[in-house]
Structure formats: structure tokens, C-alpha cells
Write a protein that binds this DNA or RNA. Structure first.
Length: 801
RNA sequence: GCGGAUGUGGCGGAAUUGGCAGACGCGCUAGACUUAGGAUCUAGUGGGGUAACUCGUGAGUGUUCAAGUCACUUCAUCCGCACCA
């Protein structure tokens, strides 16, 4: 009987579907396990060969947990708002909802074809009004708490997508999605105050089990720094406040630099003697795109403000003020004190403009380069700070600043507030109206969801407004507060909105009273294990933690953090080691692979290919090896003999394998779990037989990885019931050790012989045996034995001279 | 520049607290069975050497009875951030 994977896989997928085998139960008395994968964007291309990697991994975890008696929630859904769908709609004049529906159907079919044990009764779709009703509801709550606000500001504008981008969406100065040029544009935008949560987003990382690199990336992105604000008085009597992490170097501040956009420039206009040059410089930096600005990062440019100066508060020296685009308006105060001796950028600038460089920390050579080392330097030329270490000087100067009222301690973050408006059609409408009398007013919650109107064209307008702005019937409304005429907000939310809380909806997906019931959230949350891409560490992961914390403050959820554990998978590359892309012609289609080798082989291959966290190139040859392994598993049926316990010669191997597979799944080491099963089958083949107890354990261990073939064998053999209803095998630690062990005999650390001894043999006996080995005798004869090292169960090392 | 990784056979990759380097798979070689083999089974497979032996985890130094693993130095590659004061 051949292994006919096509029929077998179809058969079991239908059975699982019909029986709702993997539906999470609402019986809250059972122990729960919530396993989560990132829901995909249902693109027109269909499933990528990389998708099954994380999905299979968490499917394995879910299937194992079910066998271990947990009530498992392993849901799936669609993050379906987004630009590609909208662009397709524009091009082909079809409603994005129709395209989305079609794409979802295709994706769903492909996921089912892989035998993933999702609970399809809990499917969510971010574009479903019953879903985004609650996305809008959360936004309104944020608005009410002052965390959503509208602000006139310079934003990143993609000239190709004609849409505002969040800072996180600008990569290398260009649009993350289309690679188009990104320029600055001043627009009125909805913003979310994620900065208010910056500290908590750092602090609470200590309560969760994320991979260290994920925690590090999040911390770096939030970018906390400790320093001080220092007030400089100017010749005009204004206070110019700077932020610095090196207040200890205040005596070395020989000039100041403010951002070209700094508002104080307007105020000083009448005092300044070189307004033309200043204006020209401002114009030039405003025109620069982010890309150009980073390109130019090497050469320092700027203009000295002629007519005003500042006074260094620590020594009352008069120092010049410059504008330069290396000072950013968006960080700190938009103004800096420049200490060229101890800051590389200030040093470069000082060299260009021939400004004095005063050493205030000894330890380097400031005639050659800036000395920035904080750990070893000693203060000098710094009045009351002289002789102190940098660390001590920081403390002392901060105290001095606070005592004299010339400054204060200050913590700063690189994280900025989240630009939340998009000038697009295919997104959640922002549920706010603007009334001339009442300002911005949220629409009543009873009117949610605020759905998208039908429009003629999905094309964003050239002046940067949303397609919704052309629709008078949508825009014109009445103010919920005063009843007067009002206009609706025409911007929509970014794609990150719907994915910031979807894991909560899975807990109670059909609830029309609240985003999910308290009972459901109490039982299911937090997510026990969330796996997703590294590329979402600074976007989705941070955003969703922020929303969750907000909902926690609101009392809508009961846990501070949404995810207890976060891991990350590596990408699947093309066979040539390059990223898969149509243009390279190295794309592998999952449909073809499943058709040729079967879903079980594909699942096995993607788990076996290498370290789960690392990228791995696709290899058609390797998947054949996995198929071959399954063929061998299938053939075990022909070797079947009776027996209700493991045979003695395989007992230890079985216990060891159960232990290894159980542990490896928990530790994200699917590749070695499969290797252990391969080793075991090799041992079984050597005996040419397998008994029923052994077969049952073997296919149960393999079931999470290859669910179809194992279920089929289970049925064929007639064990009774279904494999997915059985128990995960147990192991006995004491039975994991063999009766005899191989001991390595070394001379001076080099292996000379190997011998088999029984486990309970004493140290002296083992050493005596080692010494009686001919090769050892050879090596020690005529030499002095200096030392004998005995590592129980491992080796004996004899040191001779 | 800063931050995070990674470096092991022909290839993908294994290796608790330092304790047999190369598990498992691919590929390759030989044999068996076959009309056939791009199927299957069995055996072999890091380099050098007939052999005893010896050399081997990017490079170098050190610690140790013992180092892929620890320390220091260095090189290369990848990823993220990038004038964050």
C-alpha cells in the first residue's frame, strides 16, 4: 500500500472541518493555552512559501498542548485593510471589499491545505464593520482621554503613494512599501500619544518572556536617555533651553546650535542682521527630503546668527548661536549646547566654522578628535567640577543646575507620537466630526461602526486629501454635541490600527456589546506564546502593547501586557540564497509544493530546514528527504507486531525521544526534534519490526508535525478513536539512561580508546579498565602519571609526562 | 558611527554546566534487488597518510587535565538604527 498523501490529506482536512475538531471550547474550567501567529495581509499573490514556517511552528505547539489536555485557542484572521488592495481597486475599478473577499477565500483555502489547526469559528477580519466598530471605539476612548489629538505638523509624505507615513514606515529615507521619495509636508494630522507610555513600554518588558534581541530592539527604538535641561540666557533676554546627556561638559560649551525650524528665529527677525542668509538656509533644509538629509550627513553646514548671542550659565561667557540642520526640531528642545571637545558632531562643526575647542575632560587628544569616553575621563578646566570623574561630575552639575534654577534633570525618549491619519479610502474612517462651535467631537458610540461610503474613485486627490473628501454626502453632518452643521473627518486610520488589538477579539469574536467579554478576556488573556516576524518588533509589537496598556488603564482588559512570550522566525529565502522575488525568478509556490510532496512533507521540511530563528534558503532536494522520511513512517505499518510496552532494546531510546521532542518543541528547536524522530526510526528499522505500543508513541510524537499521515496510520492500525484525542506520551527520566555507557579514554586530553562500562561501575573500576586498554598501556608505559580525571558517564583523562 | 547577530565538511545544519566536533538530512561512493532506476534497502563518507598517527569549528593569543563553547585581540558577512545632543 503506497503513501497516497493527496487522498489522505484531503480526507482528514474534511473531517477536521466537519467536526470542528480544533474549535476552542468555552469551558473555562479547563487549563487554557493561547497560541498566536500574526494574521496575514491577504494579498493578491496568495500565500508565500514563508508563511507556513511560523504557522506550522505554532500549529505544532497548539497540537501538542491539546494532546497534553489544554483548551487551546489557536485562531486566524485577516489584516485586510491596506494599500495594495486599494491600488488594485484603483487600477481595475473594483471595490476593495470585493477584492479582499476573493483574496481571503484563496488564502483560507491555502491555509486549510496545509492542515493548520486554526479555530475557524473565531476568524476575524479587520475590514468587517462588526470588527472595526471596536477599532473606532478604542480610538474614541483615546480621544476622550486626550491621547488622540490633532496637530499641525511636518509629516513624512510619500510622493508616490500620496500618503502620510509614520516615522516607523520611513526606511532609509524612502517609503517602506513602495520605495518612493519621502518629503516633509506640513499637514494637520491625528496623532496618538504613545510617548506617554514610553517608560511603561520599557519597564514592563521585565515582566514578559521575549527573546532578548526583541527586548533590545524595542528599548533602542524607544531610546531613553538621561540628562539635563539647561537654560541659556540670550542677549535678547530670552531663555533658550537645551537638552544634553553630558551636562558635565557645560564648561566646554563654546557655542550653541538651534534647528533651522526653531520658532525663536521668528521672534528675533528684527534683531538679526543676516536674515537673508538664514532664510535661504531654512528654505534649503525644508526642501531636502529625509533621504537627501541623511545623504548629506557627513558635511556640516550652518549659518551664524548675526546680532544675537547666548550666555553660558556656568561661566557667564558669551557664545555665538548657529542654525544647522544637524539639530532636529523633533528631539529634545530643538536646541543644543555645543561642546566640540567631547562630541563628534560638534567637533566637526567647530572645525568647519573655526570655533574654539576647550577640553574639559582629560584623557584624549582634542587637537585630533573629540574625546567622548565617559568611563575613564577626569574633569578639567571646569571650575568646581575639576578632578571629578565624568559620572560624579554629572551628578554634581545636575544638583547645581537645580539649586541655581538654571536647569533640571530630564529624561528624554527618541520615540515620537504616532501619526495616525492616512489620506486613503481603504481604512477605518476616523469617527470624529469637526464643528465650528464645539471643535472636534467624537460621534456617539451608538452610531458605530462608521462605515465607508461608496465612492466613484478610490484615488487619493493630488492635494493630499482622502478620496472621502470629495463626497459631500459623507462629509456634511451634524454636530453630536450642539446639533449644528459639522464636517466629518475624511482621513482613515493606518493599517496598524486593526492589528493593534485583534488578539483580544479572538477571545470573543461575535460579541456585539463590547470588544470582548470580561469573562472571555479573563480566561484567555494573556497570549501565552506569540510568534511573528522580527520586522514587526518596532511597529506592530510596540503599537499593540501601547493599545493594550491603554485598554488596561481603561479597565477593558485585565493584564498589563498582551503577550507573555514572543519569539521570532527567520525568513525563507530562494534556492539561490536571495530574497524570493518575481524579478529574480526564484519564487516557490506553496500550492505546487503541496501538490508534489504533500502538506505533511512541506510542514516537516520547513521545520527541519534549520534553526527556526535564522533565515534559511529553500531547497527542493531537502524536501525530498522529508518526503522519504514520511515514506518510511508509512512503511512502519508493514512491520507491525503485537506488544503493549516498548521492547527492551528500544526502551531507553523511546523514553529519550519522548523527552527530547517534548522539550525541543517548547524551546523552538523543531529541527532537532525531527532529527530525533529520524534517529529513532533508523533504530526501529534496524530491528525490522515495530510493536503497537511503539508505533502509537511514534506517531503521536510525529502528529503535531505531520498530522495527516499520523492520523491515517492511527486509523489503519485500529487503535480506536482519533489520534488528536489521545494523550501526549510520558517519559520516565530514570528510563532515559542506558544500562551501559561508552566511556572515552584520553591521554593528555586526546582520545585514545573507547570502552563500554555499566552505569553503576565505580570510579576505580572504570579507571582500572581504562588502564588495561592496550592503547592506553602503550601510551602510559615508561611515563609518570600526574593526574587522573574522571567524569562520571563521560570520560577518563590520564595526564602523563 | 552606534546597536544586534552570525562565522563549524561538498551543502542545510547538530553539539546541557567547558568533556568523543560534525547528530539528523541532502549530496556523493559501493553493494543488493531490479527490464530499468531520478524507486527502495544495506554499508561507507571532515582533510592528510598504506599505517601507527596527525591536522581540523573565520584568524591570532591566553586560561584549563580538557575549548566550537570561557577571556582578550582581530577579520569577514548579515540585519536594524542612523546627526537622537
Amino acid at each position: 500500500m503506497d503513501y497516497n498523501f493527496k487522498d489522505i490529506e484531503k480526507k482528514w482536512q474534511d473531517i477536521w472541518d466537519k467536526n470542528k475538531t480544533f474549535a476552542a471550547s468555552d469551558d473555562y474550567s479547563k487549563p487554557k493555552y493561547y497560541a498566536l501567529v500574526e494574521f496575514p495581509y491577504p494579498s493578491g499573490q496568495g500565500l508565500h512559501i514563508g508563511h507556513p514556517r511560523p504557522y506550522t511552528a505554532m500549529d505544532i505547539v497548539s497540537r501538542k498542548k491539546r494532546l497534553q489536555g489544554y483548551n487551546v485557542l489557536f485562531p486566524m484572521g485577516w489584516d485586510a485593510f491596506g494599500l495594495p488592495t486599494e491600488n488594485f481597486a484603483i487600477k481595475n475599478k473594483v471595490h476593495p471589499a470585493l477584492i479582499t473577499e476573493k483574496n481571503i477565500e484563496r488564502f483560507k483555502g491555502q491555509l486549510k491545505m496545509l492542515g493548520l489547526s486554526f479555530d475557524w469559528d473565531r476568524e476575524v477580519n479587520t475590514t468587517d464593520p462588526d470588527y472595526f466598530k471596536w477599532t473606532q471605539w478604542i480610538f474614541i476612548q483615546m480621544f476622550k482621554k486626550g491621547l488622540a489629538y490633532k496637530s499641525e505638523m511636518a509629516v513624512n509624505w510619500c510622493t508616490s503613494c500620496k500618503v502620510v507615513l509614520a516615522n516607523e514606515e520611513v526606511v532609509g529615507g524612502v517609503c517602506e512599501r513602495c520605495g518612493g521619495e519621502v518629503v516633509h509636508k506640513v499637514k494637520s494630522q491625528w496623532m496618538l500619544k504613545i510617548t506617554e507610555y514610553a517608560q511603561r513600554l520599557i519597564d514592563d518588558l521585565s515582566e514578559v518572556n521575549y527573546l532578548d534581541k526583541i527586548k533590545t530592539t524595542q528599548k533602542n527604538w524607544i531610546g531613553r536617555s538621561e540628562g539635563a535641561e539647561v537654560d541659556f540666557t540670550t542677549s535678547e533676554g530670552d531663555i533658550l533651553t537645551v537638552y544634553t546627556t553630558r551636562p558635565d561638559t557645560l564648561f566646554g560649551a563654546t557655542y550653541m546650535v538651534i534647528s533651522p525650524e526653531h520658532p525663536i528665529l521668528k521672534k528675533w527677525e528684527s534683531k538679526l542682521k543676516n536674515n537673508d542668509a538664514i532664510f535661504e538656509y531654512q528654505e534649503k533644509s525644508a526642501r531636502k527630503s529625509d533621504f537627501e538629509r541623511t545623504e548629506m550627513a557627513k558635511e556640516k553646514t550652518g549659518v551664524k546668527l548675526d546680532g544675537v548671542y547666548a550666555i553660558n550659565p556656568v561661566n557667564n561667557r558669551e557664545i555665538p548661536i548657529f542654525i544647522s540642520d544637524y539639530v532636529l526640531m523633533g528631539y529634545g528642545t530643538g536646541a543644543i549646547m555645543a561642546v566640540p571637545a567631547h562630541d563628534t558632531r560638534d567637533y566637526d562643526f567647530a572645525k568647519v566654522f573655526d570655533l574654539p575647542i576647550i577640553e574639559v575632560v582629560k584623557g584624549g587628544d582634542v587637537t585630533k578628535e573629540a574625546f567622548t569616553d565617559c568611563a575613564t575621563g577626569i574633569m578639567t578646566n571646569s571650575g568646581f567640577l575639576d578632578g571629578l570623574s565624568v559620572e560624579d561630575a554629572k551628578v554634581k552639575i545636575k544638583d547645581w543646575l537645580e539649586e541655581t534654577g538654571k536647569g533640571k534633570k530630564k529624561v528624554n525618549y527618541k520615540l515620537r507620537d504616532w501619526v495616525f491619519s492616512r489620506q486613503r479610502y481603504w481604512g477605518e474612517p476616523i469617527p470624529i466630526v469637526h464643528c465650528d462651535k464645539c471643535g472636534y467631537v467624537p460621534i456617539p458610540e451608538s452610531e458605530l461602526p462608521l462605515t465607508l461610503p461608496e465612492v466613484e474613485s478610490y484615488m487619493p486627490t493630488d492635494n493630499g486629501e482622502s478620496p472621502l473628501s470629495t463626497l459631500d454626502s459623507f462629509i456634511n453632518t451634524t454636530c453630536p454635541k450642539c446639533g449644528g452643521p459639522a464636517k466629518r473627518e475624511t482621513d482613515t486610520m493606518p493599517q496598524w490600527a486593526g492589528s493593534s488589538w485583534y488578539f483580544l477579539r479572538y477571545c470573543d469574536p461575535h460579541n456585539d456589546k463590547e470588544l470582548a467579554s470580561k469573562e472571555a478576556l479573563n480566561y484567555w488573556m494573556p497570549v501565552d506564546w506569540y510568534n511573528g516576524g522580527m520586522e514587526h518588533t518596532t511597529l506592530h509589537l510596540l503599537y499593540s502593547r501601547f493599545w493594550h496598556k491603554f485598554l488596561y488603564d481603561l479597565g477593558a482588559v485585565t493584564t498589563k501586557e498582551p503577550y507573555m512570550r514572543r519569539t521570532s522566525h527567520g525568513m525563507i529565502l530562494g534556492e539561490d540564497g536571495q530574497k524570493m522575488s518575481k524579478s529574480r525568478g526564484n519564487v516557490i509556490n506553496p500550492d505546487d509544493v503541496v501538490n508534489e510532496y504533500g502538506a505533511d512533507s512541506l510542514r516537516l521540511y520547513e521545520m527541519f530546514v534549520g534553526d527556526f530563528e535564522k533565515t534559511a534558503p529553500w531547497s527542493t532536494k531537502s524536501i525530498k528527504g522529508c518526503k522519504r522520511f514520511l515514506d518510511r513512517v508509512w512503511a512502519l505499518q508493514d512491520m507491525l507486531i503485537d506488544g503493549d510496552d516498548y521492547r527492551d532494546e528500544l526502551k531507553a531510546s523511546f523514553h529519550k525521544t519522548v523527552k527530547k521532542v517534548s522539550e525541543d518543541i517548547e524551546n523552538l528547536k523543531f529541527n532537532t526534534a525531527i532529527a530525533a524522530l529520524m534517529s529513532l526510526i533508523n533504530e526501529i528499522y534496524a530491528t525490522k519490526q515495530i510493536n503497537k505500543a511503539e508505533l502509537k508513541t511514534f506517531i503521536t510524537l510525529l502528529n503535531p508535525f505531520a498530522p495527516h499521515i499520523t492520523e491515517e496510520i492511527y486509523e489503519n492500525v485500529g487503535f480506536g478513536g482519533m489520534l488528536n484525542e489521545q494523550n501526549w506520551p510520558e517519559y520516565d527520566e530514570t528510563l532515559c539512561v542506558d544500562d551501559t555507557i561508552e566511556i572515552v579514554a584520553q591521554i593528555n586530553g586526546k582520545v585514545k580508546a573507547k570502552l563500554v562500562v555499566s552505569v553503576d561501575e565505580s570510579k576505580d573500576d572504570v579507571i582500572a579498565k581504562v588502564k588495561s586498554e592496550p592503547r592506553i598501556q602503550n601510551a602510559i608505559s615508561g611515563k609518570n602519571i600526574i593526574k587522573e580525571i574522571y567524569v562520571p558517564g563521560k570520560l577518563v583523562n590520564i595526564v602523563v609526562k
